[in-house]
């Protein structure tokens, strides 16, 4: 008792890379073994800390992509490489199965979906902002929850789509899940529109109407989040039902 009280503070712990797999040519999922992982809610993230030989260290946040419980007790992160980045290229290209990284988490109790919530859900994701939204989609399936989810996923090109096969399969097997893609740089062949950014029409057509009082989760680069949240408000969604998480950078 005394020990837990004293050490109740969140600490850094070593996680071991159990497996790594490419989700796109530039994004990789790291499957982590974290001893004594306490479980997490979809939408939460961890902080990752890397330390160089000379003691220099860098810290970044990464959303948890997987839902809990996971049969093997593993935790998954998906990292999008930014070519001029300090940390992401290391996580996508250098680190290998068997290596260790330090992490702290799970953290964040606001940008989370809870299965007891009865509202329908609109998910707006830009780029790697889809990662915590994917955790919500996966958690909904594990919980066998009936609330319908609609995901609008803004991504540069078809090749950049994360979890493409899994999303296709889930949409096919689950009438309660819809996914609409917005391509900002290049569309698939025969796509009905030219590349464009997320707009009022897309959110109006592929989201839930404000009358349904959906819970809205918006995540991605800072500029994407601000645009998408403004669109929701303009369409009449209650700002108190809109939860946002900014990853930094521009879309």
């Amino acid at each position: 008792m005394a020990r837990t009280a004293v050490s109740g503070r969140l600490i850094w712990r070593a996680a071991t890379i159990a497996e790594a797999r490419w989700e796109s040519p530039t994004a990789r999922t790291l499957v982590l073994d974290v001893p004594d992982w306490p479980g997490h809610l979809p939408g939460q993230h961890v902080d990752v800390r890397l330390t160089a030989e000379d003691g220099y260290s860098a810290q970044r946040s990464y959303s948890i992509a997987s839902a809990w419980p996971e049969p093997g007790g593993k935790v998954e992160l998906t990292v999008q490489r930014l070519d001029d980045g300090e940390v992401s290229p290391y996580l996508t290209d250098t680190v290998q199965a068997g290596d260790q990284i330090e992490l702290r988490g799970p953290v964040g109790g606001w940008f989370v979906w809870r299965e007891k919530s009865t509202a329908p859900v609109v998910l707006l994701g830009g780029g790697s902002g889809v990662v915590p939204l994917m955790a919500m989609v996966r958690a909904r399936a594990i919980a066998g929850s009936k609330q319908p989810f609609r995901l609008i996923y803004s991504v540069r090109t078809p090749e950049d789509v994360l979890y493409a096969d899994e999303l296709r399969r889930r949409v096919r097997d689950d009438a309660g899940l819809d996914v609409h893609y917005v391509y900002t740089r290049k569309t698939p062949d025969n796509w009905p529109s030219a590349p464009k950014r997320i707009d009022v029409a897309a959110v109006n057509t592929y989201g839930w109407p404000p009358d349904f009082t959906p819970d809205c989760f918006v995540c991605g680069p800072t500029t994407f989040v601000e645009t998408a949240a403004d669109i929701l408000v303009a369409l009449g969604h209650d700002p108190r039902r809109i939860r946002t998480e900014r990853f930094g950078g521009t879309s």
Partner: peptide, 13 residues
């Protein structure tokens, strides 16, 4: 100091 991340150099310095 934390565990060393093998192969991590960090920003050029």
């Amino acid at each position: 100091m934390g565990i060393i991340s093998r192969g991590f150099g960090g920003r050029r310095r």
